[in-house]
Amino acid sequence: MTEPVLSLRSLHKRFGPKVAVEALSLDVPAGSMLGLLGPNGAGKTTTLSMATGLLRPDGGSAHVLGADVWRDPVAAKARMGVLPDGVRMFDRLTGAELLRYTGLLRGMAEADVTARAGELLAALGLDTAASTLVVDYSAGMRKKIGLACALIHAPRLLVLDEPFEAVDPVSGEAIRSILRGFVGSGGTVVLSSHVMELVESICDRVAIVAEGRILADGTLDEVRAGESLQQRFLQLVGVHELGEGTLSWLRSS
């Protein structure tokens, strides 16, 4: 088997008394699209932050194509593009300026940056908003410009936290076809989502996280085990059953 593109080994992180991620290990093989699933507060964002160099783990390691994210961050970061969730952007720049900024920070040549920025803006339907300040973008437009920033240096690995959240169906389809093409040409994607149907339709691998641990990890069919992903997810994570009388005052009739 070839070397995994993203390899997490027993990652630990605790915030005060709360253990956010505990002994989490995960391998993502090349050319796969992995959906990272988990309930709210499961540690998905914490895990992705530790894998991308935003949050220093208490223990464990993360490697991107053999480069240690925490020992050789420059090499590791050069190989991945990241769309963080719920993080501010330099929003007093226009969309085009932000893309150019990101490309130049990546050390790309100016000509490449300009050409790719134009293509990316057009592909994501942002060309009309290219000279609008990002602060005036809608939530979906911010997702798209964030994705464009993650793509501009043609990374080998994409780490996307909730890439489809608040994105309209048309742009969503555009993002899907971009990601499919990226994976088809040998790229690797790790994305987190809460929408099971979406993960079933585009991902070929799935990992389910709850309380900072991996509950299931494998190809889509292995994890589903003959059921729908939704049912399997609920079985693994545990359903929170509502009693008969719960919230009875809410029923108006």
């Binding site: 609008t132 300040l133 005036d136």
Partner: peptide, 25 residues
């Protein structure tokens, strides 16, 4: 708080400063 819509993106700044991380920042 609103940003103020479209802005004229002065290419002058980009032309004067080098196209490197330092210049971009």
């Amino acid at each position: 708080a609103s940003g103020g819509g479209r802005v004229h993106s002065g290419g002058l700044v980009d032309r004067i400063l080098p196209a490197s991380p330092v210049g971009a920042i």
